[in-house]
């Protein structure tokens, strides 16, 4: 049964990843992680300083894109004043979560793999263990908690960056619609629950990215080369997961109910 070995390997490693992630989530949920709250704050600081700017940058570029396409598409269906609908939905519901997920995977996820992987191969994780410190708690749970502390705010600011970019593209660049007209439609087609749903989508992506990063980094082996391979592998899984979460989120939150203020 040679052709079954590949799926079987996938299943085995999926089980291992799930077990590892369950352990980390348990440690955060049982509040054990607050034993290392100082380390958590340090990780939060690192996250803010090193990752926020690139995340906002990518979201901004994508916001521009959303605005441009939205303006031209609304024009083509004969409703240029409705560009705000397109921008509101495209930004808030779909592309900001995706852009956030991509950049989280690229910057934060692979960063964690590289960092933890190098700690693994230079015996630093073993050193923690023999000093009587639970290394999963100290290294992984603190990172997860740090990302939960910081990323909601980063995400909300990213939405702001996306909105601003779409406004620039629709109103200032294409200019089929006035600023007031744009905003009227733009704000009419979104409401606080939409924002919360979008935030949930983004946070689920971030959580998965951090957990996957921790798994691949913590279990790296085979010297610096092994760390590089693990980093590359984590990216593959993260990309697939980000897309699946994006789709499931859309289906769950907006699939049956478009949550639009008009029509059926």
């Amino acid at each position: 049964m040679e052709w079954l070995t590949v799926p079987r390997e996938w299943l085995t490693s999926a089980g291992e990843i799930a077990k590892f992630c369950g352990k980390i989530l348990g440690q955060v949920y049982s509040l054990k992680v607050f034993r290392f709250f100082g380390e958590t704050l340090r990780q939060s600081g690192i996250l803010i300083v090193s990752s926020t700017i690139v995340i906002w940058g990518l979201v901004f570029i994508i916001g521009l894109q959303c605005g441009t396409e939205g303006a031209y598409f609304s024009r083509s269906v004969g409703a240029p004043s409705q560009a705000g609908v397109f921008a509101a939905w495209c930004d808030l519901r779909e592309l900001v979560p995706y852009a956030f997920g991509y950049m989280m995977a690229a910057k934060v996820g692979t960063g964690i793999v590289a960092e933890l992987g190098s700690m693994r191969i230079s015996d630093e994780i073993d050193a923690l263990e023999v000093m009587g410190i639970d290394s999963v708690l100290f290294l992984c749970a603190t990172r997860l908690l740090a990302s939960w502390l910081v990323l909601p705010f980063v995400y909300l600011a990213a939405i702001g960056a996306g909105f601003f970019a779409s406004y620039l593209a629709v109103v200032q660049q294409v200019g089929d619609v006035s600023s007031g007209g744009y905003f009227l439609v733009f704000w009419m087609f979104q409401n606080p629950p939409d924002l919360v749903y979008s935030l949930i989508k983004g946070m689920v992506m971030a959580t998965v990215v951090v957990l996957v990063g921790c798994y691949y980094g913590y279990n790296a082996s085979g010297g610096p080369v092994g760390v590089g391979t693990a980093t590359a592998k984590s990216m593959v899984l993260n990309i697939v997961m980000v897309h699946l979460i994006g789709m499931l989120g859309t289906q769950v939150f907006w699939g049956a109910n478009p949550r639009a203020p008009i029509g059926g």
Binding site: A114, S118, P224, G228, T231
Partner: peptide
């Protein structure tokens, strides 16, 4: 660069 973190950081 060399060192434990080199390749991982490069991929990142």
């Amino acid at each position: 660069s060399g060192g434990a973190e080199g390749v991982g950081r490069a991929v990142n």
